[in-house]
Every structure is written in C-alpha cells, then in structure tokens.
Nucleic acid binder design. Structure first.
Length: 586
DNA sequence: TCGCTTT
C-alpha cells in the first residue's frame, strides 16, 4: 500500500511533466546560447547535453519568450573550425564563450575534414536535403542538431576528392567519406547516420529520379534485436510520406524477400549481424548494391563474438564506392584499430571526452557487503521514494528472472524483466510495456545496456557490478538522455574489488563524488582478478520466504540452490578482496 | 576475466 502511494506519483502523469521540463531546459539553453552573459545560476543548471545547441544559429523560434538573437554564423564557424584543427591540446578564444566549465568539445581528425553545419537548414542548403526529410525532421522534434549531428551529417554527405584513386568512375560519383563517430550516450547518434543515409539514397528504389541499381542499398547493423527495432522506428519516422522500403530484418521478413524482385525494392535493411549472415549464406540476399554500411555500437560489433559476422557482411558489400561508418559512445583502442582498418580515408569525430559519461547523470557507489545483502538493499531502495521507470541490471539471465520474481513477491508494483533467454514475443511485450510507461521497474541483463532509448528512465541501478568500464558507461547511459537528468546507483560487494577502482575513476571524471578510500585502493594484480572472476553468483532467492511459489520456481530454486552453495563455498575460500597486499601497479 | 549478445 505504501509502495503504491509512492509510485502513484509516477506513471502516466510523469511523462508529461518530464516533457515540460525538457522544454524548459531547451528554452533555457537557447537563451544562454544567444546571450553574451549568463547568470551563474542558469549556467550551472544547464545540462551539458544541451550545450550542443551552441551550434544552432538561433533560439527555437516557435517557443514564446525565447531570445532569437544569435551571433553571426560566420563568426561561430571560424571559432569552431579553429578548434577543429587544433583540437587535442589547446583552448583559445573559443573557450571564452563557453558558458560551462565542462563543455563537450568536438575533436576531429582526418584528411580534409568537411565543415560542420550549425543547423539542419544549413545542411539542407549545402547538401540539397529534400523538403520531405526536412518536414519529417521538424515533425518529430529535431529542431537543432546535436554536436555529433552537426559534425557527422556533413561528413557523411561529403565526398572525398583528395585522392583520385577513390573516385569511382563507373558510377560517375566520388567516394563518400567514411566516419568513426564517438559521442556520449543519448546524444542523437542514430539520426547522425540515418539522415545522411536517406539523403544520399535520394528516393525510394525504382523512383525515376535516381539510379537505384538492383538490390538493397543500405545496411545498418546493431547488436541486439531491441536496438535494431528502435533504429527501424526512427528510420520510419524519417521515411514518412514516401514509399521507402525499410526492413527490420528477422526470419519472417527474410522470408518475404525470398523472391529477388521483392529484394530489389528494398532500400534499407536494419538487422543484427547473425540474422543477415544466415541470409547471405543461404543465398537469399545479396549485398552487391549496398552503398552505405553502418555499425551502431561499433565496439560491441567488433568484439570477438560479432567480429567475424560483421566482417563477412562487410566483405559481401562489394561495391567499391561503399560508404562505411561506425558509431559508439565508447571505442576502446583495440576496437578503434579494427574499425579504422575497415574504413577508407576516415574522419574521426569525438564529442566530449572519450569513455566518460554525461555529467548530468548523478552517479553513486553503494557498498552492500555480499551478494546476500543485495536484495535487502534493493528493497530498502524501493521503500524510499523513487522515480519510475527504474532500470535494474544483473549479470546473468537467471539472476534477472529471479530478481524480478523476488521484487514482485515483495510487493514492488509493475516489475518487468527482459533478457535474451526470453522468447521473441516476451521480449517484444516487455519493450512495449516499457515504451508505454507500464513498467516501473525493469530488470534486465546486458542486452538492454546499449542504445536503448527510454526517455522516461531517470534511475539506473547496477544490482550486479558491471565488468567493464564500457559496460558501466552504456548501462548508466540509459538515463540522462537528450539533456535530461539522471541518477545511477551501483551496488558493489567485496567481490567487486578488482573492478571498483576503474569504475570509481569514471565517476570522478564525470563529476560524481567518490569516497576517498575507494580512490586509494591499490590496483589489484592480474592474478587476483582471475581469481575473482571465478566466483559465480547464484540466482537471487530470498530464503526467508518460501510460501506461494509455483512448482517451476521451486524446481529451479532447488537446482540453483546447490549452485549457490557451491559458489558460497568457493567464495569463502577466496582471500579478502580489498586487502592491500594485492599490490599496486598503477 | 566472464557472460552478454547474435539463429
């Protein structure tokens, strides 16, 4: 009952309120953008995310009470061009007009980097964007480009002319620029590749205005079904009003393309890699007409499990003038090397500091001793006021299922679960409830960590400690999107010692406080980490409550119970994790 | 590291 009262503040009303907040933030930012001097209070409250609007030439014209005056576009451009060229080590006059101490700098690297564009209108003029695309942009609220959009879209719509070998004489066109784009979570990367892709394709296949060749013309790859579906939805928005054929690739849609004539009408395929590889190998899909290949969540797509599949797809794209682009919020050095080797004469764009989350996500670390203490801690958390929907991450599928069950049994309302062990339909239903705001607590695995954009998510809880800095950044990046504020809580136990310091450094870098003692922790030796990795976590079961469970749960509990005991024994045999003798090699 | 994702 109490929980219900707490939660009744959330739900449907919530979205409206949030949206209003967003509009206010948006206006606030626009004012500060065009004004020369800002009251400090306004500045400090401005989410850095909105700082992207520095690229906009004016304020939002439709919104009342907004200051429309702006600096001359030329003046702005000069300053930022200068910053582009000398990005790594200098701050000059551009710094002076920065309203925030920590702003998102954009750094670019590459040959003949195309100029960025401050507005969508400027992009329209430079690249003849169709009025159809412009209409859909404004219809869906894309009024001002974010940093990655300002830079990425012009790059993807530009041609490489410095190297004559890249000129494709057959198609009488120049090679479009390849791009590696790194921009924080929730900063509009999807539009950064979809818009230029559709602009470059020009019109749906078969249209008399263009030479569409025969076969699919663009492919977007994403690591999960859910993300592919979300990208598909975005793409449909941009396509609205014309007869684009945009396919979210699945077994079912693949079957509808058995006939080559049907395939020839396809403009864009959005898919997970393995699904596409399956069709390639069965000969029911050709990629020889693909002109644009996009890897979203590129570092994930290039890690060991996906790499071969992606390479096979890339190899199947046989057009010499294919444009490739990779996007991610994180790109560790090894993944970047692989990415750069795939790309031809690439431009590299980095927005903000690489591998640093948005400062508008308030992050904290919560010590919870051991695994058994986690559930009580989480229940305590939910006994206090919170802002649904909350996203809770666990390390394994069984833990996600069992934690969700425990929360339900403990009376937490509207708990949902999502992991890749569930059926396609179960997953789709869970996403649908989440989108409708019916889920207040969503327990999930790493499958939800990347790319998913639930605008209402204000709180993320890492119930199980993330096993990499990248995982941490992506998980907490489910909140704090598009300029909203967010909160991220990370539970850690003694077992998590080996990774604690690296995550703590991420908090520190992005402006969240960290207890001094954590920062003083020595960096554990490799051997120690190896040992820690062997500790298996059991399913989450509350031994105090045994009544009212169905047989399936009981059965699984018996199985998992023995696993749990084993894990416990093993854990006992481990040395104390945080002991200083672990040795420092930092 | 591992488990996570992909049919």
């Amino acid at each position: 009952m109490e929980a219900f009262q707490l939660l009744s503040r959330g739900g449907i009303k919530f979205d409206k309120k949030r949206f209003k907040n967003d509009v206010e933030l948006f206006n606030g930012k626009s004012k500060s953008d065009s004004g020369k001097e800002q009251p400090p209070s306004t500045n400090s409250e401005l989410p850095v995310e909105l700082d992207f609007f520095k690229y906009a030439q004016g304020g939002p014209s439709k919104r009342k009470g907004t200051n429309l005056e702006a600096e001359s576009p030329a003046g702005k451009k000069r300053k930022f061009t200068k910053e582009d060229e000398d990005s790594e080590d200098e701050e000059d006059e551009a710094e002076e007009r920065k309203p925030l101490p920590q702003r998102h700098r954009v750094t670019t690297k590459g040959n003949n980097v195309p100029d960025h564009a401050d507005t969508f209108e400027e992009m329209r003029e430079r690249f003849q964007l169709s009025s159809h695309l412009m209409t859909n942009l404004s219809k869906y609220g894309y009024h001002y480009p974010t940093g990655i959009q300002s830079y990425g879209i012009p790059i993807l719509l530009s041609v490489s002319s410095f190297d004559p070998r890249l000129v494709n004489t057959l198609t009488n066109s120049l090679q479009s620029r390849d791009l590696a784009a790194i921009s924080p979570t929730g900063t509009g990367k999807t539009l950064s590749y979809l818009l230029p892709m559709m602009a470059a394709l020009g019109a749906p296949s078969g249209s008399s205005q263009i030479d569409s060749g025969s076969g699919v013309r663009a492919v977007v790859l994403a690591p999960t079904r859910e993300l592919a579906q979300q990208i598909h939805n975005e793409c449909l928005k941009l396509a609205e009003g014309r007869k684009w054929k945009i396919i979210l690739f699945s077994k079912a849609t693949a079957n509808t393309l058995k006939d080559k004539a049907a395939r020839d009408k396809v403009d864009i395929i959005i898919s997970t890699p393995l699904r596409l590889v399956a069709s390639l190998q069965s000969g029911s899909l050709e990629l020889n007409n693909v002109r644009h290949l996009i890897l979203d969540e590129a570092d994930r797509m290039l890690d060991s499990e996906f790499h071969n599949q992606v390479q096979e797809i890339a190899a199947g794209c046989s057009r010499a003038d294919i444009q490739k682009a990779v996007f991610s919020a994180t790109l560790p050095a090894n993944a970047e090397k692989i990415a750069m080797d795939m790309l031809k004469d690439p431009v590299r764009v980095v927005v903000g500091l690489k591998d640093t989350p948005l400062p508008l996500i308030a992050q904290s670390l919560t010590y919870v001793a051991d695994d058994a203490s986690k559930l009580p801690s989480l229940l305590t958390y939910f006994a206090l006021p919170y802002s649904p929907p909350v996203l809770v991450f666990t390390s394994t599928q069984p833990r996600a299922s069992s934690l969700a069950e425990e929360l339900v049994m403990n009376g937490i309302p509207n708990v949902d679960c999502l992991h890749a062990g569930m059926t396609k339909k179960e997953r789709e239903d869970a996403i649908s409830r989440m989108r409708k705001g019916e889920s207040w607590v969503m327990v999930s695995t790493e499958v939800m960590a990347r790319g998913m954009d639930f605008k209402g998510v204000r709180e993320v809880i890492n119930y199980d400690f993330p096993t990499s800095v990248q995982s941490y950044i992506h998980r907490i990046g489910r909140t704090g999107r598009a300029g909203r504020e967010g909160k991220a809580v990370t539970f850690f136990t003694d077992e998590d010692g080996p990774y604690l310091k690296s995550i703590a450094n991420v908090l520190l870098q992005s402006g969240s406080p960290v207890p001094e003692w954590i920062l003083k922790l020595p960096k554990p030796s490799k051997m120690k980490r190896k040992q820690m990795g062997k500790v298996k976590r059991a399913e989450i079961v509350n031994p105090a409550r045994q009544i009212g469970k169905n047989d399936a749960i009981k059965k699984r509990e018996m199985i998992e119970g023995s696993k749990r005991r084993k894990a416990k024994d093993q854990a006992k045999s481990e040395q104390k994790v945080l002991s200083p003798e672990a040795g420092s090699n930092s």
